[in-house]
């Protein structure tokens, strides 16, 4: 089929993004809509209460909440950027040879030092 054969890609394959997003939306709306169509909803106050093991919620749910992973997010950011740098490097490292390898090794080593430092500072402790 036209869309799938490898020789006809340029500019056409990316249309699959639109197709897939469309398919996803259609699929989920279809599924939800079908159940809406089939089910006659009933209403009661208890039914709409948020589930908390059968007891009314104490206090507000949306409070200032201690997210334990703020530092994880920072660390992740650093390493994810590193990963993005490595992707193009990985593609060509076989052609560039030893030099690229050593460069990457140095790069990773420095990052690793930073990682060790963060670890020492206790950044990797879940609160």
């Amino acid at each position: 089929m036209y869309l799938w054969t490898r020789n006809h890609f340029s500019g056409v394959g990316s249309a699959s993004l639109v197709v897939l997003i469309g398919a996803g939306i259609v699929f989920s709306l279809l599924a939800i809509g079908l159940s809406r169509f089939l089910v006659k909803p009933t209403w009661s106050r208890q039914k709409l209460e948020p589930y908390e093991c059968g007891v009314p919620t104490i206090g507000k749910t949306w409070i200032q909440y201690n997210v334990g992973y703020y530092l994880f997010a920072l660390m992740f950011l650093i390493f994810e950027v590193e990963l993005v740098f490595l992707f193009p490097w990985a593609v060509v490292v076989k052609q560039l040879g030893m030099v690229a390898l050593i460069e990457a090794a140095v790069f990773l080593f420095i990052l690793f030092l930073g990682f060790l430092y963060a670890h020492r500072q206790g950044a990797l402790k879940w609160m």
Partner: peptide, 13 residues
């Protein structure tokens, strides 16, 4: 069975 279940939105959501 799942299709024939009511999809609830809890109060306050």
């Amino acid at each position: 069975k799942l299709v024939s279940k009511e999809g609830l939105t809890p109060a306050g959501a």
